[in-house]
């Protein structure tokens, strides 16, 4: 079972995950702004910027993160931002938002000039996350694990990052056993999503180039 220390450690991460959300004034624009590819492009770009700021605020609260070398902090955030944001968007889209926000957001994404070949893997990822029915602690910890992935470009001190990621993986493994007793493969399935995220990350760079051209 989960030790007292792990419990406290997890609480810090989950509290931070809940505290740092995209501000209301940004999300409510989803419903207000009128509807065109340009409008959707601007709105999605604004939401992405806000999501990066939220991600950094969340990451600052990950135990030990601020004790890492400053440039390594930047390299970790830069290397994982897109993946962490896709993970967060998937979680938001898979928990039914009130009065149709999910449908509106999905429609905007589908009508913002993003190429179809990128749309499919992105929405497939959202579906696969939705099917996992992750509890909040799992979502928060998986996001933290994604950010603390040592092998990102320009990260110098890999062992220091591994020392932070290791306890998180350990707690996540225990959580999965606790919340999904009849699914021994659940933890492995979660980590499988991280691989899928890396592919999405690769697509994302290509998608941005074509999106800008559109």
């Amino acid at each position: 079972e989960i030790t007292k220390e792990q419990q406290a450690f997890m609480k810090v991460i989950v509290d931070s995950y809940n505290r740092h959300q995209i501000p209301q004034d940004v999300t409510k624009k989803l419903l207000q702004e009128q509807y065109s590819a340009e409008e959707n492009f601007i709105l999605l770009t604004e939401m992405a910027t806000s999501q990066v700021q939220v991600l950094v605020e969340f990451t600052k609260n990950i135990p030990g993160f601020l004790s890492l070398d400053h440039e390594d902090q930047i390299a970790l955030l830069k290397g994982s931002a897109v993946e962490a944001m896709f993970l967060r968007s998937a979680q938001v889209l898979s928990t039914k938002m009130p009065n149709g926000h999910t449908e509106v957001l999905e429609e905007r994404i589908r009508n913002s000039g993003i190429s179809e070949e990128f749309m499919t893997p992105m929405f497939n990822f959202y579906k696969s996350i939705g099917k996992l029915h992750m509890v909040q602690e799992e979502q928060a910890l998986l996001t933290a694990v994604t950010i603390l992935t040592p092998d990102r470009p320009f990260v110098k001190d890999h062992p220091a990052v591994e020392r932070l990621q290791e306890p998180m993986l350990e707690v996540l493994r225990k959580l999965c056993a606790l919340h999904h007793p009849r699914e021994p493969q659940y933890f492995a399935r979660l980590l499988g999503r991280l691989t899928e995220l890396r592919t999405l990350n690769h697509y994302h760079t290509e998608m941005l180039t074509s999106w800008r051209m559109n």
Binding site: T49, V52, Q53, V56, E57, K60, L66, H70, Q73, I74, L77, K78, A81, T205, L208, T209
Partner: peptide, 21 residues
Amino acid sequence: PATNLGLEDIIRKALMGNLEE
């Protein structure tokens, strides 16, 4: 690509945030 530079700027500014607090 320009966006990555933009991304790094947003990250640096947000990280600096704790120095102002």
